[in-house]
Amino acid sequence: MFDTTPLREVYGSLLEAAATVADSGRPPTPAPGEWDADQILAHVCLVTAAAITAASAVAAGDHATYDNRIALDIWTIGRVIDLAGGRAGLCERLRRQAEILCGFGGPALSDAELDTLVPTRLLSAGTLLLDQAVPLRDLFLGLIDVEIPGHTRQLLALCGNGDGTGRADARAGAVTA
């Protein structure tokens, strides 16, 4: 069984950071070459959808893969922003996606399913971070430990409440192996 409490918490913190950016009273401007708040949220929507897809495939006994390259594609990110209708729609989409992803916790997946090796390819800022099979549970742990907290800090940095760099953790998207 997998306890999704930490997963719920990191998504909650991300959504709180998005609200902080929206309530900051000034339009947050990213550093040159960095993403704005909507782009960060759309990226996380795409990453979360890929994790849902991988978990669903494992639960269905199908071949699962996880590849974050489409979540880095600026055209796709823009399309998700448009389809969601902007920041409010992105936040609602993320809230619902987090609920779905957390639905794979508890007894929904057995330990054997959580240990299923998932061929995984992760890139960040054009650098290959991982290209190997990892247990499905490590995809969840990567979201909890690195990906979502990194983007939460990135959002907060946009309005001066983060580390001031506007950059996510250099290992964003990394999976603990």
Rank of each mutant, 00 (worst) to 15 (best):
A54Q: 05
L46M: 15
A49C: 04
P32D: 13
T48H: 10
Y66D: 00
E99P: 03
A60D: 15
V80A: 09
E34F: 07
F104G: 04
I81A: 06
R79M: 14
A71H: 07
D82H: 12
T53E: 15
Q39L: 00
I70A: 13
L101Q: 02
G103D: 08
Q97W: 00
I40L: 11
P32V: 01
A98G: 14
T120G: 05
A49L: 11
I40E: 08
D36E: 11
A50W: 03
D38I: 00
G103H: 05
E113P: 04
D67Y: 02
G103L: 10
C91E: 15
G85Q: 09
A88F: 01
A98R: 03
N68Y: 08
L94F: 08
A57T: 08
D38N: 14
A54F: 04
T120N: 06
R69C: 01
A112V: 11
A49Q: 13
V47W: 13
C102L: 04
T48C: 12
A60S: 14
R96A: 11
V58M: 02
E99T: 12
L122T: 09
A54W: 07
W75S: 15
S56P: 00
I77Q: 11
L46H: 03
D38L: 05
L72H: 14
E92A: 12
T65A: 10
A51P: 07
A55G: 06
A37S: 14
L122P: 00
Q97R: 05
C45A: 15
E99A: 09
S56Q: 13
L101H: 01
T120S: 15
E92I: 06
L83S: 14
A60Y: 01
P32M: 07
H63C: 02
G85P: 12
I74G: 03
E34M: 10
I40V: 15
A88I: 07
A98F: 01
I81S: 06
C102G: 15
S124L: 00
E92P: 05
D38G: 08
G61K: 02
A50N: 15
D82E: 15
D115Y: 02
G105K: 07
Q39N: 05
T116Q: 10
T53K: 14
L114M: 12
A55V: 04
A55E: 08
A84D: 15
D36V: 03
I52M: 03
R121V: 15
T116K: 03
R96L: 13
R93I: 02
T116N: 04
S124D: 02
I70D: 13
T53V: 00
A37K: 05
E113C: 00
D38Q: 15
T48A: 07
G105D: 10
G85K: 07
A71D: 11
L117H: 05
L46N: 04
D67A: 08
H63W: 05
A71K: 03
L41Q: 03
V47D: 11
T116L: 07
L94E: 08
D62A: 11
A31G: 12
V44C: 13
A31N: 10
D67T: 02
I100C: 01
A42H: 04
Q39W: 00
D62Q: 13
D115W: 01
P32G: 02
V47H: 10
P119V: 03
I70W: 02
G61H: 08
A31P: 10
A50T: 06
I74D: 14
G106A: 12
I40R: 05
V44S: 02
